[in-house]
Write a protein that binds this DNA or RNA. Structure first.
Lengths: 336, 336
DNA sequence: AACCGGACGCAAAACGTTTTGTATCCGCAA
DNA sequence: TTGCGGATACAAAACGTTTTGCGTCCGGTT
C-alpha cells in the first residue's frame, strides 16, 4: 500500500536503484564518492520517479534551507520592486528562494518578521531596517546569521551593508543648480524618525556645505515619503515671502507632489522654482515636467545585496565585514 | 555542554517547566488538554527562554509550513506590487509568510519555481500562470495543493481563481467614447501567446460588440506590455490614412507609450485621438494628459487571492472550487 | 465496593533527509 | 603471503518537532 498522494522519497529512489538511501544522497550531493555505474542507476531512478528532495527535511538535518528573507519597508513603494527583482534574480540563479516581508518601518513588525524568518531557518536576511538599529537586528537573528542591511549608521555596523553615496548625486544636483545661479535651496526630507531620512538630509547638508551654500532651517521641511505629503510640505515651503528658488526632495514621490504644489501656487517649474527628486523611479520620466532627479540604482543595490548575502553564506561569520557603496548621479530632465 | 549558538528547543523548555516535550507541545498548540497550572509553568519557561518553535522541524512533522508561494510574472511591473502587498498583508495577519517568485511568463521558469515551492512544502500557491495552463500547474503541484490562479481559461479550471471582469470596465470605456460620437476604435493588445492578453482582447471584442460597433482587424495591434512596445504599436496604428479616433490599450504602460506615439505623430490627445489605458497604476494619474483608464483593483485582487488560499488551506481539497470575479470600472481623466 | 470515563501526562514513533562511523572489497607493495 | 590504503556502500544516529497510544489518577455512578 503506497501512501496516498505522496511524492517519491529518497528511500523509494534507493529501492529502485538497488542501493541505500545514503548512497542516493551521496550520489546527488557529491559529498562522498560514488562509482559511475551506481550514480547512473541512481540518476535513472531519480529521473524515472521524478524525485525532488524534500527541502524541509533537508533543511532540518543540514541546517541549510536555500532560502533568504527579504525584509523591505513596503514593496508597494515604487522604488522597491526593482530592488526586489534584482535580488530575486541572482538568488534564483543560485537555487535560492526568497521570502518577502513588509515591515512598514515599524519596530514591532520588524522584530516579528525577523523572528518569523529565523524560525523558518533562512540562510540569510537582507533587510532595510528603519525602526530597529543594526545592533538590534543582529540581536534577534543571532550572531551567526548572514545579514546585509541597506541603511547606514554611525559607527560600526554588525552586518554587511550595501549603501548608496547619496551625497554624490545630491552634490551634482546642487552644482547643477548653482551653475544656473540658483543658491536659494530648500529640502523636503522624509518623515523624521526613519533612518533613511536622517541620512538623506545629512547627505543634502554635506552637498550644500561643499558648495559653500547656507540653507536656513525654515527651508527644510519633513514629509511622509509620498506625493500628498510632498505637496503639503512644499506648499508650506513656498508659502513664506522669501521662498527658495529650488527644492530638492528626499524621493521622487515627494518631488512629484512638490511640482503639483508649485503649480497650485501659480509657480512655473523650473522657471520660478526648480524641483529635483531622488530615486528616478519609472514615473519620474513620465510626469510633466519630466523630473530632474538623482538616480538611485535600485537594481544595482539589489544585485549587490544578493551577491553579498551569498558570499557571506559561503564564507561564514568570521570573514571581515563587507561594505559596498554604490554611486548615485544626477539625471537632468525638465524640472530643474 | 550546551550546543553552541543554539536556540532553545522544546526539550529545554520542557526541562525548565519540569514536564515532557509532549506536554509543552500540547500546551502551546492546545491539541490536547493541559491543566492550567502546568500550562502556566510551560508558558513561563517559554517566556524566560524566549522559545520559538523551529518551523522547519514542525513543518517536517506536521506537513504544514505556514507559508505560501506567490508566483508573479514580474514584481517590477508596476501593477503587481499593490497585489503582492495586499496578499502579504492578509497572510501575515494569519501568521503566514510569503515566498515570492518571478516567472517572466516563461514556461520553464514557471515549472521550476513551482517545483521549488512544492519541495519547500508551501501550504498553498497563488500564481498567475502565463505559459502553463491551469491543468499543467495543477499537475506539478499535485492534486491536493491549495492553488489560486488569476488568469482565466475556457472550460473548467482545476483551481480556485480570482479574476477581474475586464469586459465591464472596457464596456464603460466604449460607452464613454460612443457618447462623444467616437466609433472608430483601435486596440493595442499585449503580446500574443500570453494568457492575459488573449482575454483582454476578448473582453474588448465583447464590449465593442455589445455597443454595436465593428472594429476592423487592421485596428488591432499587439505589443509587449511596456511603454516602448505601446509606442511602436500605436505608431503603426496611426500611420495609415484611415486611423482610429480612439485607441484602447491592454495596460497603462502601453497607453502611456500610445500617448507619446500620438504626440510624435503630431496628434493631440484626446482631441485628435483618445487614449484609454488599463490597470490604473499610480503613474496613470501623473502623466500628462492624465490617463483615462480602466481601474483594475490590484489590492482587492490580492486580498481575494489571499483569503481564498487561506480558505482552501482551511477546508481541504474536497470543497467545491471558488471563483471570484471583481468588477473593473472606468475612471475618466484627460486622455479620453 | 466495583466500575467507568475524563483529565492529564509521558514515551516512543514518525516526518525525510544528511552525516558519520564502519565494513567490505580490491589491487598493489612489501 | 601479508598488509595496507583507497574506493565504495551501508546502517544508524541525528535534526526538532507533532502525533499517537497508553497509563495513572480522580471523582462520580451504579
Amino acid at each position: 500500500m503506497t501512501r496516498r498522494n505522496d511524492r517519491p522519497s529518497i528511500e523509494s529512489v534507493a529501492a529502485a536503484a538497488g542501493v541505500s538511501p545514503t548512497t542516493v544522497s551521496h550520489a546527488l550531493s557529491g559529498k562522498r564518492a560514488v562509482s559511475a555505474a551506481t550514480r547512473k542507476r541512481v540518476m535513472e531512478a531519480v529521473e524515472q520517479q521524478n524525485y525532488r528532495p524534500n527541502m524541509v527535511a533537508r533543511g532540518l538535518r543540514s541546517r541549510r534551507t536555500q532560502s533568504v528573507a527579504l525584509l523591505l519597508v513596503d514593496i508597494a513603494n515604487p522604488y522597491y520592486p526593482a530592488l526586489a527583482r534584482a535580488i530575486h534574480d541572482v538568488l534564483a540563479g543560485e537555487g535560492y528562494v526568497s521570502f518577502i516581508g513588509n515591515t512598514d518601518g515599524d519596530a514591532a513588525t520588524e522584530r516579528r518578521l525577523l523572528e518569523e524568518m529565523v524560525a523558518r531557518g533562512v540562510d540569510g536576511v537582507v533587510m532595510q531596517p528603519m525602526a530597529l538599529s543594526a545592533a538590534q537586528v543582529r540581536e534577534v537573528v543571532g550572531p551567526a546569521m548572514p545579514l546585509v542591511i541597506t541603511t547606514d549608521e554611525y559607527g560600526d555596523i554588525p552586518a554587511d551593508s550595501v549603501l548608496t553615496d547619496d551625497t554624490r548625486g545630491l552634490g551634482e544636483a546642487v552644482d547643477h543648480l548653482v551653475r544656473q545661479g540658483i543658491r536659494e535651496l530648500g529640502f523636503v526630507d522624509g518623515a523624521p524618525g526613519t533612518s533613511t531620512d536622517a541620512f538623506r538630509l545629512q547627505a543634502f547638508r554635506a552637498a550644500v556645505t561643499a558648495a559653500g551654500i547656507e540653507v536656513p532651517d525654515r527651508w527644510i521641511e519633513h514629509s511622509p515619503f509620498d506625493r500628498e505629503g510632498g505637496a503639503a510640505a512644499t506648499a508650506r515651503l513656498l508659502a513664506g515671502p522669501d521662498r527658495p528658488r529650488a527644492v530638492l526632495c528626499a524621493n521622487d514621490l515627494i518631488a512629484i507632489g512638490a511640482v503639483q504644489a508649485a503649480h497650485a501656487a501659480g509657480l512655473r517649474v523650473p522657471e520660478d522654482v526648480a524641483i529635483v527628486g531622488f530615486d528616478d523611479i519609472e514615473t519620474a520620466a513620465l510626469v510633466s515636467p519630466r523630473l530632474t532627479t538623482v538616480v538611485n540604482p535600485a537594481a544595482a543595490v539589489g544585485d549587490a545585496c544578493a551577491r553579498t548575502i551569498l558570499w557571506r553564506v559561503e564564507n561564514g561569520p568570521d570573514v571581515p565585514r563587507k561594505r559596498t557603496v554604490l554611486p548615485t548621479r544626477l539625471v537632468v530632465r525638465q524640472s530643474a
